[in-house]
């Protein structure tokens, strides 16, 4: 699968080129991700999305903006963080586009490029999660919430207390984290895997004739060349 060959409409700025290439590299890890080329802009994804009402860019527009070569707006959107990854869009897409996986790729790219506000909730939650995982091999819910709230909004921790107490009364809180026995080898696996996530080198993207959805642009250039 050579997804990097998806054609670019017109001339992109250096920054846009860089983001576009990085994004396409992210997509390499998704089977059949080249289907992104076959979007018919029907809007089934947006109609199926339970959280599209809270998004600034709808799922349909996500694909449209990608094709229009505007990665920057996508990475700055609220959309990619509001997605609850329920996969309703992906299962209903008549063009078999991996919409949810594409939004995951955008999230990873935004984090890779450090495009998010400081103490951003989704990022902080993921970071806290990763920290606990690396030291125990299993998740410890209580610790996750404490780390998370300390990073984002310590006062929220107090409003969380009543629920915590109710859960504790019912013996539903584990106070000590459970740790896997073979943590050394587990950490070795993670360390090795992290090497594969190294920032990717940026290649040159050239303007290609016949870019998807940009027939009009091409016709224009053809006409111009005839003149």
């Amino acid at each position: 699968m050579k997804i990097v060959n998806i054609k670019v409409p017109g001339k992109l700025s250096w920054k846009e080129q860089d983001l576009r290439v990085s994004f396409l590299r992210q997509l390499e890890a998704v089977p059949n991700s080249e289907k992104i080329k076959s979007c018919i802009q029907c809007g089934t994804c947006t109609g199926s999305c339970p959280v599209s009402y809270a998004m600034d860019i709808s799922p349909r527009e996500v694909i449209a903006l990608f094709r229009a070569g505007d990665m920057e707006s996508l990475l700055h959107s609220k959309t990619i963080w509001v997605c609850a990854s329920c996969y309703a869009c992906q299962t209903r897409c008549p063009a078999l586009i991996k919409v949810t996986d594409i939004i995951y790729a955008l999230k990873r790219l935004a984090m890779e490029k450090n495009i998010y506000p400081p103490n951003f909730p989704v990022y902080s939650l993921s970071q806290s999660f990763v920290k606990i995982m690396n030291s125990y091999g299993r998740l410890h819910e209580a610790r996750l919430l404490v780390f998370y709230f300390v990073k984002t909004n310590p006062f929220k921790l107090f409003s969380f207390m009543p629920l915590g107490l109710r859960m504790a009364k019912k013996k539903r809180i584990a106070y000590m984290p459970s740790k896997i026995k073979d943590i050394k080898n587990f950490q070795k696996i993670i360390k090795k895997a992290e090497q594969f996530d190294m920032p990717r080198t940026v290649g040159e993207v050239q303007y290609l004739k016949g870019a998807v959805g940009y027939g009009a642009v091409d016709k224009k250039t053809e006409l111009e060349s005839k003149k």
Binding site: A29, Y104, R108, S126, F129, G137, R138, L139, F186, A193
Partner: peptide, 21 residues
């Protein structure tokens, strides 16, 4: 000696690490 599956939180940070664990 199972470990955490990685959940969606890991997949959205580092995909290969998520797959590996």
């Amino acid at each position: 000696d199972w470990n955490c599956c990685g959940a969606t939180a890991y997949m959205s940070v580092k995909e290969i690490v998520g797959f590996a664990i």
